[in-house]
Amino acid sequence: MKNNIRIYLVGAKTALASRMAYRGDFFMSMLIMLLVEMAAPVITILIYQNGATFPGWNMYEALLIQGVFLLGKGIAYPFFFGIVWNTIERVQNGTFDLLLIKPKSVLFMAIVTGFDAEDLGKLVGGVTLFTLALSRLPAPEPGAWLQFMVLFTITLMVMFGYGLVLAGLGIVWIGNFRVYEIFESITSFGLYPTAIFSKSLQTIITLVIPVAILGSVPATVLLGRPSPGTLGAVGVSLLFLLFSLGFWRWMLKKYTSVGG
């Protein structure tokens, strides 16, 4: 374990050094990584500024959901979600083989070599939006914080699960970077209060596909009004993680039988 952490740190360091070779582009990209995530908050703010609302939610409550979502993405994208582009790119140009000749699990190697420094911009954005929204809302109880921490850990696990599914798809669907769009579109439902969706859709994004857990489920705990079905969402998330691990293994097996 200690060893693996060391490997991860060396990997992150080299990735950062690589990216810093073009400093200007790096900082620009970091800013952009933040900007592209601002679509939902911008829409939300403009809706409220034009005098409209999501019925039953004030602007900062809605922004808190998006803050939590972005915080999760901000941690996932630089630190482990890089497996997606790393896998797609490597399978496409044939260097995925190089991960297989290392004496470590392929998944671990894909994480190590997929550290994505510019996505730290998302983390900065997530922290900012989260604190900004929270500062305009009544302070949560310590108990709520505790629950939030537990749920947010699950958020990160689900993010990892999505990473595995997309990377797995990237193995068989060669060179297809559009898998990101599939992910973005599905998870967008987690950016808004679940109450705005129809009943059946609410059930789907909470209890079938873990989407609400990415934003609204942990956020509503901080707001003192937990979402219905929170426990179920947790269960579904854990199942999803298991499924995604299995999916990744299956796709990897396919790769080693076809050889890219």
Partner: peptide, 9 residues
């Protein structure tokens, strides 16, 4: 869904 919610009122 966003706009349906917004136009509810």
């Amino acid at each position: 869904f966003i706009w349906r919610a917004v136009y509810a009122t």
